Amino acid sequence: MTAKRIVLSSDHAAIDLRQAIAKHILAQGYEVLDIGPVTTESTHYPLHGQAAAQKVVAGEADLGIILCGTGQGIMMAANKVPGIRCGVCSEPFSARMIREHNNAQILSIGARVVGESLAMEIVDAFLGAEFEGGRHATRVDMIEG
């Protein structure tokens, strides 16, 4: 594996799972850029989704993993950043497919939807996959407009 820098962000509902994911991927040799938050004080998921997406677009991170209660809201916020493709996944197959077929740069997970063990399987599937290109590149280009 070529070392990759992964940006992590969440809202207050997903701090514990985000920190567990950070530890998990650090152990695998990834560089982690954890942009918080660090307290469980209520915060706004759109700010955290957009901040992570901006780090990826700026080249400060290769990929991102973002989390909120369901994974849906933070994913929507990340996808508002031009050039970002982010998908919410609750199982490993979709996490692999969003990389292989959609060239997604960011994975979103719902901390209130999946447990820690399943979350690690989802993360591993996402980080272990590579974009296949070919006919999928044509479709990704269509998404980009």
Rank of each mutant, 00 (worst) to 15 (best):
M1Y: 04
A3Y: 13
K4H: 12
R5P: 10
I6H: 05
I6Q: 08
V7F: 05
S9M: 09
S10L: 06
S10A: 00
D11C: 01
A13G: 14
A13S: 13
A14C: 05
I15M: 05
I15P: 02
I15E: 06
D16C: 03
D16A: 09
L17G: 04
R18K: 08
Q19I: 07
Q19S: 07
K23H: 10
L26Y: 09
L26D: 14
Q28W: 06
Q28H: 09
G29Y: 03
G29P: 08
Y30T: 03
E31N: 11
L33P: 08
L33Y: 05
L33K: 08
L33V: 11
L33D: 10
L33W: 09
I35Q: 09
I35E: 08
P37V: 02
V38Y: 14
T39C: 06
T40Q: 13
T40I: 06
T40R: 11
E41S: 00
S42V: 09
T43H: 07
L47G: 11
L47M: 12
L47Q: 13
L47V: 11
G49I: 00
G49P: 01
A52D: 01
A52G: 01
A52F: 00
K55M: 09
V56L: 03
V57D: 04
V57N: 00
V57A: 05
A58Y: 04
G59H: 04
G59D: 07
E60Y: 06
A61N: 03
D62R: 01
D62F: 02
I65K: 00
I65L: 01
I65F: 02
I66P: 02
L67M: 04
L67I: 00
C68P: 01
M75Q: 11
M76I: 05
M76V: 07
A78G: 02
A78L: 08
A78H: 01
A78N: 08
N79T: 02
K80P: 11
K80F: 13
K80T: 13
V81W: 10
G83M: 03
R85P: 01
C86W: 03
V88S: 08
V88M: 11
C89Y: 10
E91L: 11
E91M: 08
P92W: 10
F93P: 05
F93H: 12
I98N: 09
N102P: 05
Q105P: 12
Q105K: 07
I106M: 09
I106F: 00
L107C: 07
L107A: 02
G110W: 10
A111E: 14
R112Y: 15
V113K: 14
V113P: 13
V114Y: 10
V114D: 15
G115S: 13
G115R: 12
E116Q: 11
E116V: 14
E116F: 14
L118A: 14
L118P: 12
A119R: 15
M120L: 10
M120P: 15
M120K: 11
E121R: 15
A125D: 11
F126L: 10
F126S: 09
A129K: 05
A129H: 04
E130G: 09
F131M: 05
G134C: 13
G134P: 12
G134K: 15
H136I: 07
H136V: 13
A137W: 04
T138F: 15
V140A: 07
D141N: 14
M142L: 12
M142S: 12
M142I: 15
I143E: 08
G145E: 15
G145F: 14
